Amino acid sequence: MNGQKILQTQNNNEWETIGTIKKVDEGIKPGVYNIYLAKTPSDKNQYEGQIIHIDKENAIFYQQVKKDFIVHQLKATYGKPVAGKDVAIQYDGEKSTLTLIDALKNKRTLKI
């Protein structure tokens, strides 16, 4: 996508571009992210993964956890999400706490 981010929605069986075409956030790999398949989080769970998109208009943000996507509420989260960053989100009831994860600490190395 030439380093560009395009948001699309399906309308009458056709894909329609919504919003403006923007430069992709640093840290996000090029590709197609099907965030329309995002699931809502369950209480008392922790989610670790990268923040893919922040939708300020709808007060939500999307996180990729392994191959799944989770949609979180901005108003219910303590901490500021940044697109492209790896975070852990811990739920306690309807409120959640966001913590940055050091990606280098989580990488596995193989010595030869």
Rank of each mutant, 00 (worst) to 15 (best):
M1T: 08
G3P: 04
G3Q: 09
Q4M: 15
I6R: 06
I6H: 08
I6S: 05
L7M: 10
Q8W: 04
Q10R: 12
N11V: 15
N11L: 13
N11D: 09
N12M: 11
N12Y: 11
N12T: 10
N13S: 12
E14W: 11
E16Y: 09
E16M: 10
T17F: 03
I18N: 09
I18L: 06
I18K: 10
I18T: 15
T20D: 14
I21S: 06
K23F: 04
V24P: 00
V24K: 02
V24N: 01
V24I: 15
V24W: 00
D25V: 06
E26K: 07
E26M: 07
I28A: 00
I28W: 00
K29P: 00
K29I: 04
P30M: 03
G31S: 02
G31Y: 00
G31F: 00
Y33A: 04
Y33D: 04
Y33P: 07
Y36H: 14
A38L: 07
A38C: 09
T40W: 09
T40N: 15
P41I: 07
P41D: 02
S42F: 09
D43K: 14
D43T: 09
K44F: 14
Q46H: 05
Q50I: 07
I51E: 02
H53N: 08
K56E: 14
K56T: 06
E57L: 05
N58L: 10
A59P: 03
I60A: 06
Q64S: 05
K66S: 13
K66R: 12
D68L: 03
D68I: 02
D68H: 10
I70T: 08
I70F: 06
V71G: 01
H72F: 14
H72W: 05
H72C: 03
H72D: 02
Q73R: 11
Q73F: 05
Q73E: 12
L74F: 05
L74R: 05
L74K: 08
K75I: 15
A76G: 01
T77S: 11
Y78H: 08
Y78D: 13
G79M: 03
K80C: 07
V82T: 11
A83T: 02
A83L: 00
G84F: 00
G84W: 00
G84E: 00
G84Q: 01
G84H: 02
K85M: 13
A88V: 08
A88E: 09
I89D: 01
Q90I: 08
Q90T: 14
Y91G: 04
Y91I: 08
Y91D: 04
G93W: 10
E94T: 09
E94C: 05
S96I: 05
S96D: 07
T97V: 15
T97Q: 14
T99G: 08
L100K: 10
L100M: 11
I101E: 07
I101F: 03
D102W: 03
A103R: 12
L104H: 13
L104S: 15
K105A: 10
N106R: 11
N106M: 09
N106C: 06
K107T: 11
T109M: 11
T109C: 10
L110C: 08
L110G: 08
I112T: 13
I112V: 14
